[in-house]
Nucleic acid binder design. Structure first.
Lengths: 341, 341
DNA sequence: CTGTTAGCGCCTTCAT
DNA sequence: ATGAAGGCGCTAACAG
């Protein structure tokens, strides 16, 4: 049996089809009598307005698209949660475009903002390269970048995290504890996805070392694919250096867990033999007692949606760039080095 | 500047609007010459077919809706990953309806399958109550249930997990190690969301104890809100009993972590003083060396999509119920009880 | 091969 | 207050 349409309802209720439409949309200019009449038929026929038709007519989709790389990673989940919860307070639906390949990345970045499947697009952690800009500039729906940036994109709404400062804070903390040999384990700094976080945190790391007058040793920076196991292997490698670091700053909590594993493997006590600092403050960090740099994941998602809504309501709003602060959370994986130096 | 429509393209290319449509949809019956011509105009005008209009015309949305409670929980992420990855191989988009309140639950269960925003719906972990059935029965798109069940719903496609068996396996393992006093810490067995997993696992737990001839003591079963901290508190309570259990089976890995914390708090060594078994085998379980019951999270999502696609292709397909197996993964948190008994 | 036309289901003037 | 008609952008069936 075919789904009832607005026409069926109109016919059955003996009214014009425009009247039904008015009832659906709560127009005040319809007599209480006919309203009740129509309402009755609607529920009798189990009528639901077809959202697609309405979207076409209205020119709105009432959905927000989110483009996010590797959405299962805890940090992304945190952002998505902020987005979802904020959206849930509204009438908007949420569609997710997960990105795990470069090809998909390009498709999403170039097409999602143009095909008008959504009224707005939030792009997470994928900083547009210069060649992506034309596409974004021609987007016909508002776009906001979360945890992504591009100096040329001052005309886009952005929520950015000061990762340079975050890296600096983490490193400075270790320096403050007396560490001189501090390692940094991260994702590859240069990837096709153009992630900036590891890069920025590295900049902060270097900056902190420099201002502390500590020499930057290249063997103390190891990069690899993102992941706990990968970080574990890198940490093993670094800790097996002739002169190993006394502290390691990991580009994420997940990677910090790998470092912790490596330390355990080598019978190094944390924090006595090795200090470890993570990044993100994902949920498990508290459980592990991991010292880490907290970034406002949930908040970044929420802000992204709010920014989007603001421009949705008033398209003439000037694009803004909100910077979210980071904060050091000291727990039990950091301490002064045992043997000074 | 308004977005270009198919009409603009047609006019600019000096062809009929149907021809443009054919080019877009790769119809073979277009001369190579005009095709090129049209293609040129399309890229010149940066034309993108409006998906909404196409959806209306085609009667398909090319999107799949997923209704999922508390989507940030690791187990749900695992299922979502299976769904997303499978969908990514297709042309379908994914829209997510997160459920965190009963109200939202009802809306999603009753309306999503009827409003035709998606060509198919996957419902995760929300077992329809009897009063929900009429709505599901009147759905005008295929629905598949993942990790959810209802005996009355034999006409629905389902992917179910044998949680009773899972609970049995876990408990039997502990019994096999010689434990006689085995606790169970879980979510509330009865909730408005009608989650069945904790209930089923409890049934398995009881069944295993019974067949081992072990008395079931009510003080060895504690329930509370889902979560690590809540489980931590429950575990503290249970371990402070005059005669505490020597082993605890937790309804999820997350809750098992809480138990581990409690043990640590009470200076109980795991597994020497206390054995702990979790459920799910989420990623952190391996890191923690947690003995747990693995369920095929990713696989359940994948299967759900496959089932959906199958009925999408052939609506006359008989609904099937696939049962996914569970498997015990023994790691380092279980051992024979120290003092026999 | 290609132009034209009739819907898809709904919303919104415009008259009445 | 309400019915009728035009249009949202596209697809598909129908002529040519």
């Amino acid at each position: 049996m075919k789904t009832a349409t607005i026409r069926d309802v109109a016919k059955r209720a003996g009214v014009g089809l425009g009247t039904v439409s008015r009832v659906i949309n709560g127009s005040p200019q319809v007599s209480e009598a006919t309203r009740q009449q129509v309402l009755a038929v609607i529920s009798e026929l189990r009528y639901f307005p077809n959202p697609i038709a309405r979207q076409l007519s209205l020119g709105k989709t009432l959905t927000i698209a989110v483009v996010v790389p590797f959405f299962t990673r805890p940090a992304q989940i945190g952002r998505l949660q902020g987005i979802e919860n904020t959206l849930a307070e509204s009438d908007y639906d949420l569609t997710i475009y997960n990105v795990e390949t470069v090809k998909r990345r390009d498709i999403c970045l170039h097409e999602i903002p143009c095909k008008k499947r959504a009224d707005g697009v939030i792009i997470i952690s994928l900083s547009p390269r210069d060649e992506d800009i034309p596409y974004l500039a021609h987007a016909d729906v508002p776009v906001v970048l979360v945890d992504a940036n591009n100096p040329l994109l001052s005309q886009l709404n952005r929520v950015v995290i000061d990762d340079v400062e975050g890296g600096r804070i983490a490193t400075r903390h270790l320096v403050g504890l007396g560490h001189q040999r501090i390692g940094y384990i991260s994702d590859y700094l240069e990837t096709a996805f153009n992630f900036t976080s590891s890069r920025d945190r590295y900049a902060g790391y270097r900056s902190a070392l420099l201002s502390a007058g500590i020499e930057i040793r290249s063997e103390y920076h190891l990069q690899g694919e993102h992941g706990r196991c990968e970080a574990y292997l890198l940490a093993l490698q670094m800790l097996n250096l002739p002169v190993p670091p006394t502290a390691i700053f990991a580009a994420s909590d997940t990677q910090a867990m790998g470092v912790l594993q490596a330390a355990d493997e080598l019978d190094l006590k944390v924090p006595d033999d090795l200090s470890v600092v993570g990044y993100d403050d994902i949920e498990v960090a508290e459980y592990l007692g991991l010292t880490t740099v907290r970034q406002l994941l949930y908040e970044s998602g929420r802000r992204g949606v709010e920014l989007l809504f603001k421009t949705l309501l008033d398209p003439t709003t000037e694009p803004t760039c909100e910077t979210l602060l980071t904060e050091l959370v000291v727990r039990n994986t950091t301490a002064p080095p045992k043997c000074s130096g």
